[in-house]
């Protein structure tokens, strides 16, 4: 009996999130109109989830070391705005603008988060709550609270268009996800994060430089948000200063539904991706059933609580 529980536990840790996804899909397949079951709708679900995936990958790192990053929604708006401004107002080449605005901008925002956390010793929740406001305010200041339009076609197509019928957002999200997966499973740095998340004091005595890793984690989280900023701007065709407000909560939800432990040290990128897909699935399925948006929030909230409770219950067995 006890052995069976153990075996179940191992399988649940590996495939639990996927199981939730499959079960939910089956429920919608029965309840929702037939168009839900079509292949093109499945691709639609994935496409809808792409930006959450990008953010959830970064957020995963922060949660993995028992921290959190609340500023990513604001970083999306900030980097999107800079990228757009560089192209529209300064005529910078779209790819250079992406590198400077999205990549470098995101890295810098994350670097600031990490440095502040290390210097002050204040919990990341508070620091990133602060920078959330700061980055959002900076976005509003540089944009004068106006959206920026008229980005070059090349940019819109590269980051918001289609590649052989597949959305570029998905292609980018997959590249980021695979890189993150590689880093967390194949490199010492990634494994160190699990060590750090498991027992921070023991990690220090085992020779892991805690502060450097915290800095790196937040820089990665900022980078993911920065890339998401470019994708977001390209998809909307405009850099909106008020975009992605509250996106961090969705990213956290995706990571947690994907089995990432809020206490750190546990979690896997593929599951986080599935977690993001589950969020996309819910909104898509409920849309198909013509359920209003506020009910969708209700469903997402309840699912989050249910998934984590189930996880706890199984872990305690």
């Amino acid at each position: 009996m006890k052995e069976n529980v153990k075996v179940f536990k191992t399988y649940w840790e590996k495939f639990g999130t996927l199981a939730i996804f499959v079960v939910m899909w089956c429920i919608f397949a029965v309840v929702a109109p037939p168009t839900f079951r079509s292949g093109s709708n499945f691709i639609q679900i994935i496409t809808q989830s792409a930006t959450i995936m990008l953010l959830a990958c970064g957020e995963f790192f922060a949660i993995l070391i028992a921290g959190i990053d609340l500023s990513i929604g604001s970083i999306v708006a900030f980097t999107g705005m800079i990228t757009a401004k560089l192209m529209v107002e300064f005529g910078v080449n779209p790819f250079l603008a992406f590198l400077l605005g999205a990549v470098l901008g995101g890295l810098l925002c994350g670097f600031i988060n990490g440095t502040l956390i290390n210097l002050t010793g204040v919990h990341p929740f508070i620091i990133t709550l602060g920078t959330q406001s700061v980055f959002r305010a900076l976005t509003l200041i540089i944009s004068n609270a106006q959206a920026t339009f008229g980005m070059p076609k090349v940019f819109l197509q590269t980051f918001g268009g289609l590649l052989h019928g597949v959305s570029m957002a998905i292609v980018i999200a997959m590249i980021v996800a695979v890189s993150c997966w590689f880093v967390t499973t194949k490199l010492t740095f990634g494994r160190n994060l699990y060590v750090l998340g498991g027992n921070r004091d023991a990690a220090w005595f085992s020779g892991i430089h805690v502060k450097k890793h915290v800095l790196a984690v937040h820089t990665i989280s900022g980078l993911c948000a920065g890339i998401c900023g470019a994708v977001m701007a390209a998809r909307l065709g405009a850099a909106e200063p008020n975009t992605s407000i509250g996106a961090e909560t969705e990213a956290i939800a995706a990571a947690i539904i994907g089995g990432t432990s809020f206490f750190g040290g546990k979690g896997k990128i593929p599951n986080v991706i599935v977690g993001a897909l589950i969020l996309g699935l819910i909104s898509n399925g409920l849309n198909m059933c013509s359920v209003p948006t506020f009910y969708q929030n209700l469903a997402t909230g309840l699912l989050l609580i249910a998934a984590v409770s189930l996880d706890q219950a199984i872990a305690r067995k």
Binding site: T188, V195, G198, F205, G264
Partner: peptide, 19 residues
């Protein structure tokens, strides 16, 4: 400050060596 409770024995044994 000694063990890493989220890991199995193997990870606990090799992590410093890897580092």
């Amino acid at each position: 400050t000694g063990i890493f409770p989220n890991f199995g024995i193997k990870e606990n044994l090799v992590l410093v060596n890897r580092l």
